[in-house]
Design a protein around this nucleic acid. Structure first.
Length: 363
DNA sequence: AACTCGGGGGC
DNA sequence: GCCCCAGAGTT
């Protein structure tokens, strides 16, 4: 086998080569790079969880502009924070961000904890983020293991163990910590993630000018496309949301989504969710039964349909406009908001898409 | 161990 | 369409 064509890479050589690349050829620039302020490091890491750097950049700038210190964030109005997070997804991150800011402002006197276990105990901070904060802000020797690291290690060392299995995770973490440069963990962690993002990319990696070309097991065995291995498959489900935009004068009803479901703590219009195979008529019938609208309600035109593909859900949103002459008692738990003020609330993207396009139509 | 949580971009 | 992205929390 071509296993013999590559030279097995010594553990100490790996980080030496990597750091050399980092010094000479790594041109990747990001505002939080080299940052030692734990607040900024933490903020950037939370924003970047499962999120591409390009997508998170504007949010990072915006948050820092609005909340220069962690005390500012801790003192902030929650709705304002959610409005700033709007569109970024994974909204539990926002919840945990607020909780942790308040924890640090209160319990830690506004000073970010500087040891790994305390950092790991913070809400929204798992093994990756704790290692990132510990190494970047405090120079503590904890190796980060993110998607980049899994990919680089799996390929260079030819590891076929699944990265999403329990033992796989454990072994990758162990290897990552053996490879870590103990004297400059922050630089090493930055280097391996930048390397994964710019050279050892998921598809079409730049193997031709890769520093590990001579050593990479995946390259010499022609297994670049097969590594890393994932064993879990994504299940998709289809959902159909019938949103009722019920106008009373210039106001319309909205509420915060409080269930443990997608878009928790964002807002929505009165919603009837139906299984696949239903029609707008059946949703309207149900809205009539619930007395959200009545026989005198004026239903405007045709419903408007928007679709959104998420990782685990395929969502169809049907927006149904209606007008009522009296406030429906059945919607007393909803907020009646002037339509001009809707932009002050945070909504899922699919609702914002509808709102922004409707605004264009009404002009 | 399996599930769930968004949105965007590359192919 | 499918996969991936500086993952974490819940069941």
């Amino acid at each position: 086998m071509s296993n013999l064509t590559h030279k097995r890479l010594e553990v100490s050589n790996f980080s030496k080569l990597l750091l050399k690349w980092h010094e000479k050829d790594n041109n990747r620039q990001m505002p939080w790079k080299g940052e030692k302020d734990a607040y900024k490091v933490w903020l950037s890491e939370i924003i970047l969880q499962q999120t591409r750097v390009e997508q998170g950049l504007a949010y990072y700038d915006n948050f820092l502009h609005n909340f220069p210190t962690i005390k500012d964030l801790a003192a902030a109005n929650e709705k304002k924070v959610f409005k700033l997070w709007e569109g970024l997804g994974y909204y539990s991150r926002c919840r945990n961000l607020i909780a942790t800011a308040r924890m640090i402002a209160g319990h830690y006197g506004g000073v970010f904890p500087g040891n790994y276990n305390d950092i790991l105990s913070l809400k929204g901070v798992g093994p990756y983020t704790a290692s990132a904060i510990a190494s970047f802000a405090f120079d503590l020797p904890h190796a980060v293991v993110d998607g980049n690291v899994y990919r680089v290690l799996a390929r260079v060392f030819g590891i076929e163990e699944a990265i999403d299995s329990t033992t796989g995770k454990k072994n990758f973490h162990q290897l990552a910590n053996e490879l870590l440069d103990q004297k400059q963990p922050g630089r090493y962690n930055q280097a391996i993630m930048d390397f994964g993002a710019t050279i050892c990319k998921p598809v079409a990696p730049l193997c031709n000018h890769c520093i590990f070309k001579k050593h990479c097991v995946a390259y010499s065995c022609n297994k670049i496309q097969q590594l890393p291995v994932k064993e879990k498959k994504i299940k998709q489900r289809s959902r159909f949301f019938y949103f009722f935009i019920i106008q009373h004068g210039s106001k319309t009803a909205i509420r915060e989504r409080l269930d443990k479901d997608i878009w928790q703590h964002l807002h929505e219009f009165p919603l009837i969710e139906l299984p696949q195979g239903n029609t707008t008529d059946s949703a309207v019938t149900e809205a009539l039964q619930m007395k959200w609208i009545n026989g005198e309600s004026f239903i405007k035109a045709e419903p408007v349909i928007y679709r959104q593909k998420l990782t685990h859900q395929s969502i169809t949103a049907i927006f149904i406009n209606s007008r009522v002459h009296e406030l429906p008692g059945s919607l007393r738990n909803y907020e009646w908001v002037d339509e001009d003020r809707l932009s002050a609330y945070s909504f899922p993207k699919i609702i914002n898409d509808y709102l922004s396009n409707r605004a264009l139509v009404n002009e």
